[in-house]
Amino acid sequence: MHIAVVVKQVPDLVEELEVDAAGTGLDRAWVKMKLNEFDDHALEQAVLLKEAGGAQVSVVALDGEGIDQVLYAAVARGADRALKVDAGTQEPLDSRRAATALAGAIRDLGPDLVLTGVQAADDLFGQMAPFLAAELGWPHVSVVSQVEVAGAAVRVQQEYAGGRMATLEVDLPAVIGVQAAPQPPRYVPVSRLRQAMASGALETATAGAGAGTGGAAVTQLAKPEAGRGAEMLTGSPDQVAEKIEALLRERGLLRG
């Protein structure tokens, strides 16, 4: 079993984010990047599968500032190979363009299974896994919280609204959007990270022609406007209950 884990970095929310002068992106001057936490779970899931049944794990990312450290950390965590794909730009790409840029390299890598985070803080549509699957022509399941190998397929737990879970079997090769690994991503000791960095074993690939095209153009990015503030209801519990009922009726939220 060969598993490819597709990862990317997102802005670390520790820093206050500012919209850039053009009003279409983040002011990147002060943004600190970190591994997308859902990708972190995808990687943990891959390492758990490796520990359970001896898979080979390759971690794949688009080239960009700081990506080397992310890849080394993945190697320190248990990935066997790390592949950096050059799409001709250091700028972050949206999911659509990232998927086209990565698909060729992933096909060349020839994994049985592709895991990636279900979504990312800077792209909440959750489209990376479906786009990748479409590019590769493979089946896809997203919002997955557990992956097990079942012969030539994988059995996955998919999460639905209201806490319902479905167990699905997907033929391989397939692309899975991981919501959560069965256990939190494990700690990467710095000594191990430094070993990985010293080994310097990153591979590189170039995205093929047509890579990184398509996608949506951001026309405006803005901070959410603050609301007018909350209205505090006062009085005894019964009075408050009456006021709530009146409010709900007034807004047409109650039937009968």
Binding site: D12, V14, E15, W30, K32, K34, P184, R186, Y187, V188, P189, V190, S191, R192
Partner: peptide, 30 residues
């Protein structure tokens, strides 16, 4: 224990913060 990734979660967070931001509180370096 740390090398075996057996670290209490609170402590792990402090380690990660120190690594990422240079302080255990997870505050921005700047």
């Amino acid at each position: 224990a740390v090398t075996e990734a057996n670290v209490p979660p609170e402590l792990q967070k402090a380690f990660e913060n120190t690594f990422q931001h240079g302080n255990p509180l997870g505050e921005p370096a700047r």
